[in-house]
Design a protein around this nucleic acid. Structure first.
Length: 479
RNA sequence: GGUGGGUUGGCGGAGAGGUUACGCACCGGAUUGCAAAUCCGUGAAGACCGGUUCGAUUCCGGUACCCACCUCCA
């Protein structure tokens, strides 16, 4: 039996780094709040996905491949989705609002999968959709009403925050402080300004389900309580608790606070999530990413610009998840440079065994930066099998070196032109006509082709982002 | 107003109360007809003010500045 590994995680609930002890080492259970599916995932959405992907890889490494249950939901009923569908209908899209919603959510889920796959994030074990768990949500709401934690008012069902004394504990706020600082208008039917919606009425054209409180739809928070209950807390032995719940730190309040209130009131004997993991936010060139600043972009935008998913992932891993992360062009350049080097070195091995210090780094509150530093050490030390195994472990490498790092992306015709120019250059060098040789080399450089002479054999060459086939043709024509 | 995070060398970014982080860039050298790549090496830090200590960038307190959240938000 191997030495038991001690994983430490910073638990937002206690604000301390704690030794992680699973409720059941044979089934470690994770829940990550997933996306509301109304549009492409922006770059910030990728952060918790990558953090949890690293976490689940680590847990599977420590507890066994099949000893982890990872759940990440899709929120497919939400006012933003309705608004997006209305916008499309007004723009001339065919179909009813409900049809447009169904199309949009299905399309967005496909995009989300494509984009997160590209970042090397493994699919969770379960990806429940909110609309598949309406009966469970209704049952939980009815239960909360029955226990005196929720009340009905004007077609809505509201959670009564005053009925749950621990409300605000996760985010370190008191109900009174929050009311004092509140800036929003409060619906008149709320008993307390902080009470939040569990169920709300739907118009005829909006998605809605029949319920004891009239036709309506769930509030945002109840889905996570209902789905984590259904998928992670079936086992009565473990007192209605599971191991780790996570998301962006902006979800801590109100979303996670409300989930705790709902779940702990519905299951007073359980602890709901024992460990809460929150990632800090993303910035772009030192500023918040926002549409108004013009620095807003999606994962797909970056992939379309030719930034490989592995490079994006590497940039995320450079920063510890609990620190604000700055996305910069400089980091992209550095990540690409480093990964290209590592991939070339890794090609010499097929190992899948990670270097123990890399594992040790992750064990300490997912210190991904330290893990990368250890990879640098392997690279510099020439331990390529351990490097390859570690890159695989970190999700930076699959079965093969990514195409972008391996093969220059030239078409056959372009390759022919480059080879022709290189042949002319080598002829010039043979006759010691270095002026011509240098002119050809500079011409290739100007066209965006980097040439590397090798000790024996054909020179290697690769494309840069500045590649211009017209300039290349000109260089050839000038001969 | 409330809550949380940050501030380290040119840039990015860690750990550790006393010993080189690391990467990128730069500089010097080797190698190369040139270029690229590679290798060797040097230098450079800890926002500010106090406190604890033999000794703090690392612990404690305060100040300043930046960011986020408190309203849908990863």
């Amino acid at each position: 039996m191997a030495e038991p590994v001690t994983i430490r995680l910073t638990n937002s609930r206690t604000r301390k780094k704690e030794v992680f002890e699973p409720l059941d080492p044979a089934n470690v259970r994770l829940y990550l709040c997933g996306p509301t599916v109304y549009d492409r995932a922006h770059l910030g959405n990728a952060r918790p996905v990558i953090v949890f992907d690293v976490l689940q890889r680590l847990l599977r490494h420590v507890y066994g491949e099949n000893s982890v249950t990872y759940v990440r939901n899709f929120t497919d009923v939400d006012d933003k989705i309705n608004a997006e569908a209305r916008r499309r209908r007004e723009a001339g899209a065919e179909g009813t609002l409900k049809e447009l919603i169904r199309e949009r959510t299905a399309e967005t889920i496909r995009w989300y999968h494509d984009d997160m796959d590209a970042l090397g994030a493994a699919r969770p074990d379960h990806e429940p959709r909110a609309t598949d768990y309406i009966p469970q949500m209704q049952a939980m709401i009815a239960d909360l009403i029955g226990k005196g934690h929720a009340y009905e008012a004007e077609g809505h069902v509201l959670f009564d925050v005053r009925s749950y004394p621990a409300y605000g504990q996760l985010s370190g706020r008191s109900v009174d402080d929050m009311i004092a600082g509140a800036r929003v208008e409060v619906a008149p039917f709320k008993r307390d300004p902080m009470d939040f919606v569990l169920w709300k009425p739907s118009s005829d054209e909006e998605p809605g389900w029949d319920s004891p409180w009239g036709r309506g739809r769930p509030g945002w928070h109840i889905e996570c309580s209902a789905m984590s209950d259904a998928l992670l807390m079936k086992d009565p032995e473990h007192d209605k608790s599971f191991d780790i719940h996570g998301g962006g730190i902006d979800l801590m309040f109100p979303h996670h606070e409300n989930e705790i209130a709902q779940s702990c009131c519905a299951n007073p004997d359980g602890k709901f999530a024992r460990v809460w993991l929150h990632n800090e936010m993303l910035q772009v060139e030192g500023k918040k990413m926002s549409k108004s600043l013009g620095n807003f972009f999606t994962v797909r935008d970056l992939l379309d610009q030719g930034i490989p998913g592995e490079v994006i992932r590497y940039v995320f891993l450079m920063t510890h998840y609990r620190n604000p992360m700055d996305w910069t062009a400089e980091k992209v350049r550095e990540a690409k440079h480093t990964l290209t080097k590592w991939y070339r070195q890794s090609g010499l091995s097929t190992s899948t065994q990670p270097y123990q210090p890399v594992v040790d780094a992750l064990v300490d509150d997912l210190n991904t930066h330290e893990a990368l530093a250890q990879c640098h050490a392997l690279s510099n030390g020439g331990d390529f099998p351990a490097l390859r195994g570690s890159l695989t472990f970190l999700g930076l490498m699959g079965d093969a070196i990514p195409g972008w790092a391996r093969v220059p992306g030239f078409s056959d015709a372009e390759t022919g032109v480059v080879r022709d120019i290189l042949w002319q250059r080598s002829r010039a060098r043979e006759r010691q006509d270095y002026a011509t040789a240098d002119r050809l080399r500079d011409g290739l450089k100007k066209a965006g082709v980097i040439v590397r002479d090798v000790a024996d054999g054909e020179p290697e060459f690769e494309k840069t982002p500045e590649f211009d086939v017209n300039v290349l043709d000109q260089v050839q024509a000038d001969q």
